[in-house]
Design a protein around this nucleic acid. Sequence first.
RNA 1: GGGUAGGUGGUCGAGUGGUUAAUGGCACCAGACUGUAAAUCUGGCCGCGAGAGCGUACGAUGGUUCGAAUCCAUCCCUGCCCA
Length: 403
Amino acid sequence: MTNVFDTLEKRGYVEQLTHPEEIKKLFEKESVRFYIGIDPTADSLHVGHFISLMVASHMQKAGHKPIILMGGGTAVIGDPSGKTDMRKMLTIEDIDNNVASIKKQIEKFLSLEGENAAIIVNNADWLRDLKYLEFMRNVGVHFSVNKMLAAECYKNRLETGLTFFELGYMLMQSYDFLYLHDNYDCKLQMGGNDQWSNIIGGVDLIRKIGADDSYGFTFKLLTTKEGKKMGKTEKGALWLNPEKTSPYEFYQYWRNVADDDIENVMKLLTFIDVDKIEELTKYKDERINEAKKIAAYEITKLVHGKEEAKKAEEATMAMFEGKGNVDTMEETKIDGNISIVDAIVTSGIVNSKGQAKTLISQGAITLNDKKIDDISYMLQDSDFQAGYAILKKGKKIYHKLVK
RNA sequence: GGGUAGGUGGUCGAGUGGUUAAUGGCACCAGACUGUAAAUCUGGCCGCGAGAGCGUACGAUGGUUCGAAUCCAUCCCUGCCCA
């Protein structure tokens, strides 16, 4: 059996390791309990968390045991790493709600049953009742402020301001690792590369307290070749929750990634064999679109299930290649013959009438393939001859209107 | 606690009494070109209104003024220096 480490490395996940040799050996020697933390700062995960879950899934498939740590306790503070400003503070109720809805998404990636079932824990369970004095004595003493301030993630904060409150984040995350190490036999913490400082904080803490079996592992963040973060859209982040980002939009996002990024995306966000990916992405002309289709389908399938992925794919074919089925298109029920502007807004294609008008005047809106250039156009019965009307924004966004 | 510099639209950052819904960059959307790609060029990017326009907005609340993001007062928050 191949070492997961090789798999992860081959697919390009690996960024930094605290103990490269030991970690590789550990993976071979035993079924390792590892943890990945997720901060419940929204009621849905977004693509940034996607890689974490992929890594966890690869690990689980290789026989290791994932612990997903929901940061129900630490989210109260907000991780200052890489942020220029302090995050907005969330109420405890918000966080608890978020934790509940995120759990459902995690279940799609990890098996919660069987011998190496994933477990989901919430650090609120141990952090909220923490006694300050005890914590300072047992944990606080092991942290050198000098060292912390030298860390890259706090450096830029030194200029804009950093509160003690936020500085405490590292201690809490480190304590999480210690807690999981002692209570769940967790030996490895994994996370995005922005978590490096926090992760080594935990690894060092455990080692200072006396154990020598703690390790850290960070993986790449999902960025474009130009180094920009991926997953931004007009409406904000690309969410994994279908109510926030529809499966079709989600599919389209991946269908449209840049040529330069497709190989990376496939390796990181699908389970397709690496050799196959390289084969698919070696082209420099339109043949690379084949890879994008496969990537979009596979990624959507992972997040929304086979059925939704199929629907998104069929809707795409219907729209872009003139085959397939309009039934799969997202649809909105319209009340009577409203104006085109209202139709655009109620379908959710854009957020305001102003935007709808702008688009019309730019020639971006078509109805049943007829360009609409009149802002005051009213929908008519003749627009629904097939029982529906197809509203199109730009070249890529379609919506079905029914009465 | 004292001194000092600040708080501007999704973000970064100009503006320092009227022509400022507020220059510019980034992000994002659309048009052209293409391969539903990138790069490039063009247009857009607070809300409502067909439009003239109206409403909201420059940390908060009051005030001065015909008129304020810009001036004054109080408060809140942040940086830096001193203690």
